[in-house]
Structures are given as C-alpha cells and as structure tokens.
Simulated assay, not measured.
Amino acid sequence: MKWINSNDDYFLRDFSDKNKAEKNTGDNTGSDSNATVQPNVGQEDTSPSDSGNTTASTNEFSFPGSSAPTQSSGRRDEPAIQQEPPIKKRRRARRRLIWFFLIVAIMLSVAFHIRYYVPYTSDTKTTGYITLVERRGLFFKTYEGEMISESHLNDTSQIYSRDFYFSIPNDSLGHLIQSYQGTGQKVTLTTQKYYGTLPWRGSQRIVVTGVSAK
C-alpha cells in the first residue's frame, strides 16, 4: 500500500503555515507601507494649500487686455462702477451747459455785429443844403448835422423843414462839412445807414462817409 505524501497532494496539504507566513509578510509590508505613506499623506495635505496659495496669488494679478477679471479686482472695482454713472451724468450736463452758453454767446455776438456794425444801406448819395453842423456828446464827442434835401425842396406839397439828419464820426470830415453851413452851396453827402446807433459813432443811424460840393 502506497502512502500519499501530504505535501504532494493538494487537497491534503496543510495551508496553515503558509497562511501564517503570508500574514507575517503582509504585516511587515503594511507597516512599511504605512511608514512610507505617512509622509505622502503629509505632502498631500500641504499640496492643496500650496495650490490654493498659487491660485490666490495668480488671482491677485491681472494683465492688461485680459477678458476675465479676477475676484479681487472685481471687488475693488465695484464701488468705482457704482460711482461712474453719476459722474458721467454730471460731465454731460456740464458739457451741455457749456455748449448752450457758447451757442447763445455766438448768436448774440452775431446779432450785435449785424445791428451795429453792418450797414444795410451804403454809398447812398443825398444832395441838399447844409443848415447846421455842431459837435455834441458828453463822453463821446461827434459832429451832428442837419440838411435840407433837394428832393424835399422840389416837392411843393410839403412844408419847408429840415428833413435830413446825420452824424459825422470823423473830425476832419466834420470840419469840412461845417464849412458849408449857411453858404447856400449845394453839396452831396455819401452816407451809410445802420440798424442801431453807437455813442462813439453818433446819435443818428445815418453816418456820413464823404462829401462833395457842386
């Protein structure tokens, strides 16, 4: 009769010794792995903080032209964004007021220039007889004259009167026209007519610019 060796037969083999050896080896490797894992665990714990610091540090800076604003920059710009609309409204209101007053000033200056400095008739010839030329004015002295026009003398239906009044801003011209006063000599005056009068130009809207005797 042949005896079967328990080591050769799989079913009769005792696995208790092998299991114990595997447990011992497993415990040793487990302790080694635990010893080796612990530093890794500490590194893993520190790595998120490092990554968080890096992300926070990157969020603190923003480059010009970047489309996505950072969280910190957004918080800082929030009060500025709230204050920008009133400032813009005030600036627009000031600009509108400035443009309004500028346009009004331009219109007034143009109207003043047209009324007092632009004659609506010029180089008008009037012939007649000088009856009076005198110098008048408190602050601005100008020559003021009166004349009977020839057309008024020829009209017999009207009463004889002085019908033409004029101012002479030029002193030399005033002296020349004054020399014809009461002489009965017929003269022709070249005049301009304005819409308004100026104190340094005379009290009449008709201003004499030239004279010629006949």
Score class of each variant (00 low, 15 high):
residue 55 T to K: 12
residue 56 A to K: 09
residue 108 L to E: 07
residue 93 A to Q: 07
residue 66 S to D: 12
residue 81 I to M: 00
residue 64 P to N: 14
residue 105 A to E: 04
residue 69 P to Y: 02
residue 58 T to W: 14
residue 85 P to V: 05
residue 96 R to I: 01
residue 60 E to S: 13
residue 74 G to F: 13
residue 81 I to P: 02
residue 67 S to N: 05
residue 76 R to L: 10
residue 97 L to R: 15
residue 120 Y to L: 03
residue 95 R to T: 04
residue 84 E to C: 10
residue 67 S to L: 15
residue 104 V to W: 12
residue 99 W to G: 03
residue 69 P to D: 13
residue 87 I to F: 12
residue 91 R to Q: 12
residue 54 T to G: 07
residue 122 S to A: 09
residue 103 I to L: 10
residue 109 S to E: 01
residue 95 R to F: 07
residue 113 H to Y: 14
residue 109 S to I: 08
residue 72 S to Q: 13
residue 94 R to V: 03
residue 107 M to N: 01
residue 85 P to E: 00
residue 104 V to C: 12
residue 63 F to R: 13
residue 58 T to V: 07
residue 123 D to Q: 04
residue 95 R to C: 06
residue 97 L to Y: 04
residue 78 E to A: 14
residue 104 V to D: 08
residue 88 K to Y: 11
residue 89 K to M: 12
residue 122 S to M: 00
residue 78 E to W: 11
residue 98 I to P: 00
residue 59 N to P: 06
residue 113 H to N: 15
residue 125 K to R: 03
residue 53 N to A: 09
residue 63 F to M: 10
residue 64 P to M: 15
residue 69 P to E: 12
residue 116 Y to V: 00
residue 102 L to S: 14
residue 115 R to C: 06
residue 112 F to K: 00
residue 109 S to A: 10
residue 122 S to C: 01
residue 124 T to Q: 10
residue 90 R to Y: 07
residue 122 S to H: 09
residue 88 K to P: 03
residue 105 A to P: 05
residue 90 R to S: 04
residue 84 E to N: 11
residue 99 W to A: 10
residue 112 F to Y: 09
residue 120 Y to P: 00
residue 76 R to M: 10
residue 104 V to E: 09
residue 97 L to D: 13
residue 75 R to E: 12
residue 100 F to R: 09
residue 83 Q to H: 09
residue 93 A to L: 10
residue 109 S to P: 03
residue 115 R to D: 11
residue 113 H to F: 15
residue 84 E to A: 07
residue 101 F to D: 01
residue 90 R to M: 09
residue 94 R to Y: 02
residue 88 K to G: 10
residue 126 T to Y: 04
residue 112 F to A: 08
residue 57 S to Q: 06
residue 60 E to C: 11
residue 125 K to W: 04
residue 64 P to A: 09
residue 109 S to L: 15
residue 59 N to Y: 05
residue 69 P to T: 05
residue 68 A to P: 01
residue 115 R to A: 11
residue 72 S to I: 07
residue 93 A to E: 11
residue 109 S to N: 15
residue 80 A to H: 11
residue 120 Y to I: 03
residue 97 L to K: 14
residue 121 T to Q: 13
residue 125 K to G: 06
residue 59 N to M: 12
residue 99 W to L: 07
residue 53 N to L: 10
residue 118 V to H: 09
residue 126 T to E: 10
residue 88 K to F: 10
residue 105 A to L: 07
residue 102 L to H: 01
residue 104 V to A: 10
residue 67 S to Q: 13
residue 90 R to K: 06
residue 120 Y to A: 00
residue 118 V to S: 03
residue 59 N to L: 12
residue 90 R to W: 03
residue 100 F to L: 14
residue 103 I to H: 02
residue 86 P to A: 09
residue 79 P to D: 04
residue 82 Q to V: 06
residue 92 R to C: 12
residue 82 Q to A: 15
residue 78 E to K: 14
residue 95 R to W: 02
residue 73 S to W: 04
residue 59 N to Q: 06
residue 108 L to D: 06
residue 61 F to I: 15
residue 123 D to M: 02
residue 112 F to T: 04
residue 101 F to Y: 11
residue 88 K to A: 14
residue 90 R to P: 00
residue 109 S to D: 06
residue 69 P to W: 08
residue 62 S to Q: 07
residue 88 K to Q: 15
residue 109 S to H: 11
residue 73 S to Q: 06
